[in-house]
Design a protein around this nucleic acid. Structure first.
Length: 650
RNA sequence: CGCGGAGUGGAGCAGUCCGGUAGCUCGUUGGGCUCAUAACCCAAAGGUCAGGUGGUUCAAAUCCCCUCUCCGCAACCA
């Protein structure tokens, strides 16, 4: 039945528009750890990763960079792959959505569903901004103007292809309910069911005409296949699946359905709804599990480029080594809630766990082997002393416990718990040294046998520990095996042979001086910023307008008479404004930054000829001006208190 | 009342399903040891387990009720 021991695991394919940060990299590291774990347990593993390379954003970015979209995607994809490789990702295949076979298969998938009637063409009615070639819904447009460029938009019907999600919604819901553990963690499943499935699914628009950089619909080349079908299909096209094949290739037959899709919690929706329905429509088997992992925050804050707190894996590895980064990510990320990463916290973990606990244990044990036994693994002896054998049994018990705990936790994707059980064993081993005091045993030849046993137990603990660590920090494990002179990664006690010649004792992880290192990082960052970021990034230009165009906007000074929160809306404040000649009610999305009392009595700028709109059931007669900060903060423009209310602003 | 998760010593978490006076890692303080990377080992200090001076019970972090706060998802930035 060893043929049954196959395991197909995937990461999401990141969008190749910019360099991946530590969060994206974490996903690959975690997936890699699971893949390596499964391989070590005898599974035939197929580990897939890659890049998603179509779409408007890459089209735009490439234009800015003055290269073709493909050239741009090539560059980012290569950079990303470089980081994956640096981190030791043991993927079996790296797919790119620009790969020929993939694009062809995506076209066939689209065609098949169209022929079947699960994809249909329909009119998509909305507002169209001609110069931008973009469609907007009723709620997106601002006062009959394009939200991007401010130019007028026209009511237009545009044809688009739709996937019949509605047809499969019940089947999907049933599948989710019949397969506990299909979406994990459990809370993510509830989000999907309660927020999307139970309220009812609307058919999904799966094509675009607003950009060209994508897989064309081969029977209607005005349309490009949108990200859903293009990107999600990678999981089967990578195995060679193509609906037009008479028989599917061996790779596909062997590995599909997938055992687990490892993805970020933000895209659980696309995987658990769109992807599954797509497969149902294709009449293909459903993957067994979708695991929506959390993300890293920078300390308490979200990581974002504009806040300047993005951490990259390669940069981190330059200070802590690849295994330092891998270990931190795997040990620190909780199962379901977001993790936290700062340079300090990485340094602390690195020092305490890797340098002090593990590194030092290995070093001192190997040194003692060398000192007391000339670098040859001694032969253990049965021990008649009750106290001593109790110690020996206890450490052996810790080994077997660690082995079974790692299995238990890894099967449930509780990576940090698995690592913790291994390090608990190492801690026990350090204690064992103090309990047995080999340096005292060595003073008396009569204790030779006892000393041999103690050292053997220690070496064997390290050997099993290294075997357990292999999926997580493989480079380090190689070094440990070299020091042990043994590469046997069996998990049973007693596989280290007496007589084995050990290698040179090496420092596995040199302790870092936290303060010094943080200062160094700060310094490096400043140098890098100075090189890269001499000027702030130029925002996207908005086409010029003439003065009359601007004069079409009526801006007036208004006093805030009252302000209150809108029930059920986190971001909205309802304001009563006084223009002198009339009063206005305006709803403004500033509630996260201003309390009612912060703004009452102040004077603001009102766009007074804006068409009224209803927000959360409250009418808004205009809009007040505010700046949109890079930090995500909104700052209202306040006027001098002696500004005359009702006066025109221009 | 949109859906869900969480509030436990300075920090991060476990314990809550199956009630019986709190456990782990880091940090702090003191001690020990010298094989080892100022490391390792031991000990101590520090918590009315968000609040209700709420209910059930011989007994509640754990069950029930109410309130507050934080986070995720959804909605929402005119």
């Amino acid at each position: 039945m060893s043929e049954n021991k196959k395991f197909y695991i995937t990461t999401a394919i990141p969008y190749a528009s910019q360099k991946p940060h530590i969060g994206n990299t974490y996903e690959v590291i975690m997936t890699d750890a699971v893949a390596r774990y499964k391989r070590q347990r005898g599974y035939d593993v197929f580990f897939l990763t890659g890049t998603d390379e179509h779409g408007q954003k890459i089209e735009e970015k490439s234009k800015e960079a003055g290269v073709s979209p493909k050239e741009y995607a090539d560059k980012v994809s290569l950079e990303l792959r470089g980081i994956w490789d640096l981190m030791g990702a043991s993927y079996n295949k790296f797919i790119r959505t620009t790969d020929d076979y993939h694009m062809k298969s995506v076209q066939h998938i689209f065609k098949k569903l169209y022929d079947k009637g699960d994809i249909y063409i329909d009119e998509y009615e909305g507002w169209y901004c001609t110069p931008d070639e973009s469609f907007y819904t009723d709620t997106q447009i601002i006062d009959g103007k394009c939200p991007d460029c401010g130019r007028p938009v026209q009511r237009m019907k545009e044809e688009a292809y739709f996937l019949r999600l509605s047809k499969y919604a019940d089947k999907l819901l049933k599948h989710i309910e019949d397969h506990p553990g299909f979406i994990e963690p459990e809370s993510r499943k509830k989000e999907m069911v309660n927020n999307f499935l139970l309220p009812g699914l609307r058919d999904l628009c799966v094509s675009r005409t607003s950009f060209k950089w994508g897989v064309p619909v081969d029977f209607n080349d005005r349309h490009v296949i949108y990200v859903w079908i293009d990107a999600l299909s990678n999981y089967i096209t990578a195995l060679g699946y193509d609906p037009e094949n008479e028989t599917q290739p061996e790779l596909y037959k062997k590995f599909w359905p997938c055992d687990v899709h490892m993805i970020g919690k933000d895209i659980v929706r696309f995987h658990s709804i769109y992807w599954i329905i797509l497969l149902m429509a294709l009449e293909l088997p459903i993957p067994k599990k979708i695991f929506g992992h959390p993300w890293f925050n920078f300390g308490a804050d979200k990581m974002s480029k504009s806040r300047g707190n993005v951490i990259y894996a390669d940069e981190l590895a330059s200070y802590f080594g690849v295994d330092g980064v891998r270990y931190y990510c795997l040990a620190e990320m909780p199962y379901a809630s977001d993790g936290s990463i700062t340079y300090e916290s990485v340094a602390v973990r690195y020092n305490t766990d890797l340098a002090n606990n593990l590194g030092n244990l290995v070093k001192r044990t190997i040194e003692m082997t060398k000192k007391y036994f000339g670098g040859v693994v001694p032969s253990p002896e049965d021990c008649s002393d009750k106290t001593q054998s109790a110690l020996d049994n206890d450490i052996k018990k810790h080994i077997t416990e660690a082995v079974s705990n790692v299995d238990k936790y890894m099967e449930n994707y509780c990576i940090s718990d698995a690592l913790d059980s291994i390090f608990t064993m190492f801690r026990r081993a350090n204690k064992y040294i103090d309990e047995t005091t080999p340096w005292n045993l060595a003073k008396d030849e009569a204790n030779r046998a006892r000393l041999a046993t103690v050292l053997y137990n220690l070496l064997e603990t390290i050997r099993v520990g290294a075997a357990l660590l292999k999926p997580f920090i493989p480079e380090t494990v190689e070094k440990i095996f070299k020091m042990l002179g043994c590469e046997n990664d069996a998990l049973e006690i007693g596989n280290l042979c007496a007589g084995t010649v050990t290698g040179e004792a090496e420092v596995l992880f040199a302790r870092v001086d936290e303060a010094k290192l943080l200062a160094q990082i700060e310094k490096d960052k400043n140098i890098k910023n100075a090189e890269e970021n001499i000027q702030p990034e130029k925002p996207e230009a908005i086409p010029e307008i003439d003065i009359n165009h601007f004069m079409g906007t009526e801006l007036r000074a208004a006093a805030v008479l009252s302000a209150e929160t809108v029930p059920g809306a986190k971001k909205l404040l309802k304001l009563q404004l006084d223009l002198g000649y009339e009063k206005r009610q305006v709803v403004s999305g500033i509630a996260e930054f201003y309390k009612p009392e912060d703004i009452i009595g102040k004077k603001v700028i009102l766009v007074s000829n804006l068409k009224p709109a209803v927000l959360r059931g409250v009418e808004s007669q205009g809009m007040i001006l505010a700046s949109d900060g890079k930090d995500g903060k909104i700052r209202v423009i306040f006027l001098d208190c002696d500004t005359e209310i009702g006066s025109r602003i221009r």
